[in-house]
Amino acid sequence: MSAKRIAGLLLRHLYLYRRSLTRMLEVAYWPVMDLLVWGFVSLYIAQVPAKLPPVIGFFLGAMIFWDIFYRAQQAIAISFLEDVWARNLINLFITPLSVGEFLTATMILGILKVTVTSLLLVVLALSLYHFNLFHLGLSLIPLVANLILTGWWVGILTTGLILRFGQGAESLAWALAFLFQPFSAVFYPLSVLPPLVQVVGWYLPTTHVFEGMRQIIAGGGLSWAHLAWATGLNVIYLFAAMGIFQWAMAVARRLGLLLRVEG
């Protein structure tokens, strides 16, 4: 692992962001729109006289958490697509950059983007809806860390699939994460789902993060069981995703895809 090469690849993306207003906005635009909608929905529900659980917290927390996951995976998938679009893959892969360094750089980029987005959301949620995520305590941090881990491996998986299946698979960069949404009990408890679907949910780390988050917001404290499940699943899936990426790379080298994805 060479820190210099990792820095080089990061630099490529930081230059890009510095220059591109649309890309900068993307870090802010969608998350803020989501926050506004869910914030007002929550305000409305809170006016309903029935005694409900702390819905504002549930929806805003879920929304912010979902965005952290989504942005982390996107940072990885899109940073790869940028090089596909720029027809830059050959240049990159004939440098001494290793696959490990390549993935590390994109994972760091993921953290950077997520940090910017979530700080923005946390501040906005606080000022607009008086929802203070940090009030919920440090116990949220291990959950957020798990979201980023999930974002990493979903991003790496997406990238592997794009590498293997080319342009046709590009939309996965936006779509694949949403496959997780219905099963991960993002905006509702797992118990709402049919029993069989609950089983699927149980094996997604995101489910445990969102369940854990609601438990904290409801005042139940951090569930070590959910945290352990989320972390364990994430570690397994991260290694699996890296394996799949290596496989995609090997196939790409065999079929000459690195020469043609750029077309």
Partner: peptide, 22 residues
């Protein structure tokens, strides 16, 4: 037939590759 990122300046691109080649 191989390009470099079009949305970076010439100097930025070269700095990136200088890093990658150490």
């Amino acid at each position: 037939y191989v390009a470099m990122p079009y949305n970076l300046t010439v100097l930025e691109n070269l700095l990136v590759f200088a890093h990658l080649y150490g």
